[in-house]
Design a binder for these strands. Structure first.
Length: 471
RNA sequence: GUCCCCAUCGUCUAGAGGCCUAGGACACCUCCCUUUCACGGAGGCGACCGGGGUUCGAAUCCCCGUGGGGACGCCA
């Protein structure tokens, strides 16, 4: 735990140009975990300084993703766009301090100068860096650039990556205000993080270079540089950067595939962070254990097999009523609109506990429950039909008789009934099992036969037997 | 091309100089359980990228190489 005098404040700052990416989700999770761990605050800021690419739909999508994941911000959401004036004020201050300047290069000139600078072994330097423009010149279109040190060592003390050494000769004088007067990302981030009191910036590795530039701005403004923690990116199963061809990228995709948010949190937290050999842990445990020092430095790959096994655990641990609701939703989602009916809900309530240990996702669970939901009369598959010899039919009729008189329809009870029947018949389960399964399940995947009995209930079991045997 | 980061089983990882003949999880294989498919149980396969140092001793520290990744915008 950190000391009480300076409360930890973390933030998640996505740019609303699309859905909430799985990598972004983990970044958000780490920020959230660290804030919870330290008793600090977790804030959300929408980085919409690029008005062209930012859309309200994307903002909604991001919040939908965060809500589903259960990651709520502690304060009001900050929209970066709304803080334009603060950004401009900071730039004015930098100009006044001689730490920023007007640059009149055109885009073409800038490109050429950049080429030239690279060839010379350093970053872009504007010829306007040391000129004082006249009042007339200032009427012309221009950008405001940061005036960084030309050739000095710069060390970023990163909580994950350690001491990262740069030289300012490789850092160009980045644009603070565009020629239309709007602030750029690198400037806005610094001003907002400072004003929001962010103490720890936990974000993707791809920002490590920005950290160098940003820290220069902090220092120029005379502000404390927050603690940086750059976490490695998540890669696809093939080790390449996560992209469309890897399939699911949006957290919404994972919801749709039937993963539980708590499973997602568990899996994502374990991806790139560890607490010894612990694999399955609750939110409370993750919060208690989460230290930035335990975040790994190497990028990690997404592994659906492992995600599935973690999800299977949380499906089993899921509260029955909640699971019923989730499966009902999944069934509706696939077009089974009638599943909300009381009778169907009863069937599901009985069936779910009997099959839930077989599923890795809610979608699989929805499949596993189909055998109980199909409506009579349904045909028998060929395999089952082939088993319906005269001898078997006679046997099934006797079974029907015995079951009709049996009262205990718990799984254990029907198991006893079945065993007794087999004993009386003097045959093994192999003689009856396959055909009975076919008749009762309609060819759908189904659990043990006694569990099928318990799931269907006496009336439905007898009815299904009836239609098969007497057709 | 320049700058930066990274490197333990197929994957996620444990490991902070001797506890390591390198541990766990997922995946995979075998067997058991069994009416199907699963679940479960018992085993098994399987890694310190390479080369130099430092040290009595290195997966752990240093250097070089190689291989991955990221960044080089008036995008964020």
């Amino acid at each position: 735990m950190t000391n009480k005098t300076t409360q930890v404040v973390t933030r998640f700052a996505p740019s609303p140009t699309g859905y909430l990416h799985i990598g972004g989700a983990r970044t958000a999770l780490f920020n959230w975990l660290y804030a919870r761990h330290t008793g600090g605050k977790f804030l959300i800021r929408i980085e919409d300084t690029d008005r062209e690419r930012s859309t309200p739909a994307a903002v909604d999508a991001i919040f939908e993703g965060l809500d589903w994941l259960g990651l709520k911000g502690d304060g009001d959401v900050v929209f970066q766009h709304s803080r334009e004036q603060a950004h401009k004020d900071a730039v004015a201050e930098l100009v006044a301090k001689g730490r920023a300047y007007a640059c009149f290069m055109t885009v073409e000139e800038t490109d050429a100068a950049r080429e030239e600078a690279r060839a010379a072994g350093h970053a872009l330097r504007s010829p306007w860096r040391d000129r004082t423009p006249t009042t007339e010149q200032l009427q012309q279109p221009h950008v405001i650039r940061f005036k960084g040190p030309l050739d000095e060592p710069l060390v970023i003390d990163d909580a994950v990556q350690g001491e990262v050494r740069f030289n300012t000769k490789d850092l160009d004088d980045l644009v603070l205000l565009r020629s239309d007067g709007t602030p750029t990302y690198n400037l806005a981030v610094v001003v907002d993080d400072h004003d929001m009191g962010i103490t720890h910036i936990i974000r993707g590795d791809d920002h490590l270079n920005n950290a160098a530039r940003q820290s220069l701005i902090y220092m120029a403004l005379g502000w404390d540089v927050p603690k940086f923690a750059h976490i490695p990116l998540i890669h696809g199963p093939d080790g390449a950067k996560l992209s469309k061809r890897h399939g699911a990228q949006a957290v919404g995709d994972y919801a749709e595939m039937g993963y539980l948010p708590e499973a997602m949190r568990n899996y994502l937290a374990r991806l790139g962070w560890s607490h010894g050999d612990d694999e399955i842990f609750s939110d409370e445990q993750a919060i208690a254990w989460f230290e930035i020092a335990d975040i790994n430095r190497a990028p990690s790959r997404l592994d659906f097999a492992k995600l599935g096994s973690v999800n299977a655990h949380w499906i089993r641990a899921c509260d029955p009523d909640r699971l019923l609701g989730l499966v009902t939703d999944a069934l509706r989602h696939r077009g089974q609109a009638h599943v909300g009916a009381d009778a169907t809900q009863d069937v599901l309530r009985r069936t779910l506990p009997l099959v839930k240990e077989r599923a890795q996702t809610l979608v699989q669970l929805a499949d596993l429950v189909q055998f109980a939901l199909i409506e009579r009369p349904f045909g028998l598959d060929e395999k089952t039909l082939a088993l319906m010899t005269e001898e078997t039919v006679g046997r099934l009729k006797r079974l029907h008789e015995q079951l009709a008189a049996w009262s205990d329809w718990s799984t254990e009870g029907t198991d006893v009934a079945l065993k007794k029947f087999l004993e009386n018949e003097g045959v093994g389960m192999g003689k009856v099992g396959p055909v009975l399964r076919g008749i009762l399940s309609g060819g759908h995947p189904a659990p043990d036969i006694s569990k099928i009995f318990a799931s269907l209930g006496q009336a439905e079991t007898l009815a299904r037997l009836d239609t098969a045997v007497f057709l």
